[in-house]
Write a protein that binds this DNA or RNA. Structure first.
Length: 214
DNA sequence: CGAATGATACCCT
DNA sequence: GGGTATCATTCGG
């Protein structure tokens, strides 16, 4: 399914945002269960929606690959805050990355990095935002920084509540992926973290062209 | 393969 | 307070 007409918008507005309780679970479970869910963004320019196909779980201060390893700082405050909110940061001086705060009751911090979505709605708007008018859809939001650019997510969404359906939110999949289609492996770009870098805390839908390579 | 580009964390005075 | 190594990436050569 793929819609691009504004008249299809009510289809999406009927869909309930994922509730707070979805994110109040172990970070690894949330990272896995976010596969197939829809990331929705509404601006004056129009609606863009993508199906999540790749995620990574990041834990609290004990996880040496996590920004939370330094404890609660100005930057990582959202990771220690209420689950279901966004954690958006700047990396390499020019790229934004979007996380969803998620961890079990009583745990200190944790978040799920959204690494790739498969565009469903607003493909041309994503192309415009990316400045790559000829890109095939599967490439438009494959990679955490491309995803943010295609969905017009920047640091102004840091700590944004993703459960309200306002501007930027997550919605249930129309059909959850089958367990056999979910694969896990080491997280990307965290080699500095030693043994923590080898843990299979990255999840993706096998064979999905929007899921990043490696 | 390496440049781009700036916030952050951490060490030092 | 100030200097600086590092970085959950992307793109073009």
């Amino acid at each position: 399914m793929c819609w691009d007409s504004p008249t299809d918008r009510p289809t999406y507005l009927q869909r309930q945002p994922l509730p707070r309780s979805f994110f109040l679970r172990p970070t690894l479970e949330v990272a896995r269960d976010l596969l197939g869910a829809w990331l929705c963004r509404e601006t004056a320019e129009g609606l863009t929606v993508g199906r999540i196909v790749e995620t990574e779980a990041y834990g609290g201060p004990g996880d040496l690959a996590s920004h939370a390893r330094a404890g609660r700082t100005r930057r990582t405050t959202p990771m220690f805050g209420e689950v279901g909110h966004a954690y958006v940061y700047l990396v390499y001086g020019m790229h934004e990355c979007l996380n969803v705060v998620a961890h079990g009751d009583g745990t200190e911090a944790g978040a799920v990095l959204l690494r790739a979505i498969e565009p469903l709605v607003g493909v041309d708007l994503m192309r415009t935002r990316r400045g790559r008018v000829t890109d095939p859809p599967f490439r438009l939001a494959s990679g955490p920084a491309r995803l943010c650019q295609a969905m017009a997510v920047d640091r102004s969404f840091d700590a944004h509540d993703l459960t309200t359906g306002n501007g930027l939110w997550l919605a249930e999949p129309d059909q959850p992926p089958e367990a056999g289609d979910i694969v896990s492996g080491p997280r990307v770009g965290v080699e500095y973290a030693g043994e923590w870098a080898t843990r299979p805390w990255r999840f993706w839908l096998t064979g999905n062209p929007s899921a990043s390579r490696r």
